[in-house]
Structures are given as structure tokens and as C-alpha cells.
Amino acid sequence: MAYQLSAENQERVKEIATHYPHPMSGILPALHIVMAETGWVSRDACDHVAELLDVPKIKVYEALTFYTYFPQKPVGKYHIQFCHNIACNLRGAEDLIQHLKDKHNIQEDQVTEDGLFCLHRVECLGACGGGPMMQVNDDYYEDLDTEKLDQLIEGFKKSASNGKS
């Protein structure tokens, strides 16, 4: 069964498309909705979006592959996007990325075995004053150091296990 958005979200996609003179403009908002629902965007989802908006499929693939914000593979429950750009780099982002790898065994571009975390290096997230910083799912965490990072990771693990039980 090919992927489909929930009925409510399908309505939303169609509604958003009316904000623009042409439904093509609805592609990015629709992909955002897909991502909010599943955490990543599959090829099936692209076809579905193209059908909903009545635009050529290739246009949706084009958007998906051009914009790096949409993961094309499943991500962990906590998707860590660590900024490694200049401002964060000056304040020690590289050491913290290494710390995540060494101490917490969260490797770059991989989902951890328990499915909780995955780490991606990203370019500037526009919070340079609070560098080093990372984005976990939708939230920013700024002014990080190893201690704070440890606490955050432990916190995520805890809330994940609470959620399960």
C-alpha cells in the first residue's frame, strides 16, 4: 500500500495550495507536512504529493533532492543536527561532535541501534550567538558544552523510555 497522508493533512495540503496562484508552490509546504508526519520523505510520499497537488512527479522529486532539509531516509527518534559552521566551529563544535561519537556512540549519518538518535552535520542554523549549538527535531539547543550535552542526551533517553512504558 503506497504511502498516504492522513485525511486531515490531505485537506491541509489542498488548502495551502490555494494560498498561491499555482499549485506548484504547494510542493514545499506539502513536503513539510509529510516530514512532520513521518520524520522523513519517501519516494512514495512524493508521488502522493504530486497526485494531491496535480503537478508532475518530477517536480516533487526535484524539490526533494534539491532541499537538504528533508531526509530521504528514516531518521532516529531524536534527529540531531549539529552546526559545524564557522561561528560554532570557533567555539568548539568539532570537539562536541567528537564527544557525541566517542562517549555516546552516536555516529554521523547513522541511526543508533536503538533507533533513538541520528547525527547529521549541518551548515549554519542561524543561532551563531549561542554557538556551539544543535537542533534536535524542531528545537534549538544553544551554548553547549560537554556537560550540557551529556545531560541532554540522558534526558532524551529517559523521556524515550518513559514514553514506551
Binding site: 506548484m24 508552490s25 510542493i27 534539491f66 532539509y69
Partner: peptide, 19 residues
């Protein structure tokens, strides 16, 4: 969606058109 180039005005217009 994470493209720096879309801060350039004509790129932004293209992006707004879904391109």
C-alpha cells in the same frame, strides 16, 4: 527547506514557485 541560496531574491522567487 535548508537552502542557503534561497536568500538570494530571485532564487527565493523560484523556490516559492516550487522550483
Amino acid at each position: 527547506a535548508g537552502a542557503y541560496i534561497c536568500g538570494e531574491e530571485t532564487a527565493m522567487i523560484n523556490s516559492l514557485e516550487g522550483l
